[in-house]
Design a protein around this nucleic acid. Structure first.
Length: 342
DNA sequence: AACCTACTCAACCGCTACGAA
DNA sequence: GTTCGTAGCGGTTGAGTAGGT
């Protein structure tokens, strides 16, 4: 049985032989891949185009980096996964020479188990509840040494309290507990103060982490734009001319919003994606309701209903990902995560 | 040495997005 | 607006292998 995509052809399946690899390499080196569906014929291979493409991308490409993942790569995967989830192709873009398949396999065979062994939910990166841990452990490796931390967190904050670690996970779109969860967030903000929620230092922890910025191709210009963009992303535009700090903003949001209506299906973390895109300039920024001219957040050109979230581009997944380190640990930056994989 | 189990990772499958006709 | 072909993605599978008994 051939592939669905090339059922007319008699194609070979399974592992590639060195001869096949050689043919494919020679063809692509000399002619480029062009249209993948025509590659097998032109290269003299009895494979489908899809298979050729996969073989080239995942194994034969000259710029691939083989061998074990480094600790830095592992850390990058976890950090980016916390924000993006199982978007392996996006994650792989932050690891030069690594493929999405490779990252995915590494995650499933190694990182995932380490996180579970540490009592962390590999999907949300939140602490697992006690009843979840044996279930997840049973579904995964029994050979993980849970005495070896995946990472340890250095607490350098004098304002850290034990209570901060007890805060329930904020899961904007998980289940019927949403409302209670959001109130936990709100209470945490009131209890521990919004000063702990410094946008620049806590969201993504990028500002002070030069090596990490370099890893993900992040420039200072991106940071400027991200900072300028933060309030329209997080909140309905404020009528106040005074910029709100992030914690105050979230308080305001929770206090003023219809929480039920706010829990919409997950959206992609636009702020992060925006950050990864080439810098927006001029008119493009204005079109998105942002203003480069004044250096601050200005009223969007579109009307925003201040009483509802219909016009709000708030991203709950992103908020959750960004907030959790703060709520649990008050870690200010990702560079405060001391890696210990030994 | 033989068998069993768990693990790794290359490859496949099914789906979606997108552009061209 | 619809259909078709292609590229790309994430989930899953299964062959090969390492390690334990």
């Amino acid at each position: 049985m051939g592939h669905h995509c090339c059922s007319k052809q008699k194609v070979k399946r399974g592992l590639w032989s060195p001869e096949e690899d050689e043919k494919l390499i020679k063809h692509i080196t000399n002619h480029g891949h062009g249209c993948w569906s025509s590659v097998p014929k032109l290269a003299g291979l009895q494979r489908c185009g899809k298979s050729c493409r996969l073989r080239w991308i995942n194994y034969l490409r000259p710029d691939l980096r083989r061998g074990s993942f480094t600790e830095h790569e592992e850390r990058t995967i976890i950090d980016v996964h916390r924000i993006l989830g199982n978007r392996w192709a996006q994650i792989a873009k932050h690891l030069p020479g690594r493929t999405d398949n490779e990252v995915k396999n590494f995650w499933n065979s190694c990182i995932k188990k380490k996180l579970i062994a540490q009592g962390l939910d590999p999907n949300t990166h939140n602490l697992l509840s006690p009843h979840q841990i044996p279930i997840l452990n049973a579904n995964n490796s029994k050979n993980i040494d849970s005495t070896k931390p995946v990472f340890s967190i250095i607490n350098n904050s004098s304002t850290q309290t034990k209570d901060a670690k007890k805060v329930q996970p904020f899961r904007p779109h998980s289940d019927a507990n949403d409302l209670a969860m959001s109130h936990n967030l709100y209470e945490s903000l009131l209890t521990h103060g919004s000063s702990n929620l410094n946008y620049q230092d806590n969201i993504l922890g990028l500002k002070n982490d030069v090596s990490y910025q370099s890893t993900i191709g992040f420039s200072s210009q991106h940071m400027v734009e991200l900072e300028r963009a933060k309030m329209p992303i997080l909140l309905p535009l404020s009528s106040s001319s005074q910029p709100l700090d992030f914690g105050t903003a979230v308080q305001s949001w929770v206090a003023n919003s219809d929480l039920g209506a706010a829990f919409e299906p997950a959206r992609r973390p636009e702020a992060y994606e925006q950050m990864l895109q080439p810098p927006m300039v001029g008119q493009e920024f204005v079109n998105k309701g942002l203003d480069l001219r004044g250096g601050g957040v200005v009223q969007s050109q579109t009307n925003v209903d201040m009483g509802s979230f219909d016009g709000c581009n708030i991203d709950l997944e992103f908020m959750e990902a960004a907030l959790m380190p703060t709520l649990y640990t008050n870690v200010g930056s990702l560079d405060q995560l001391a890696w210990d994989c030994n």
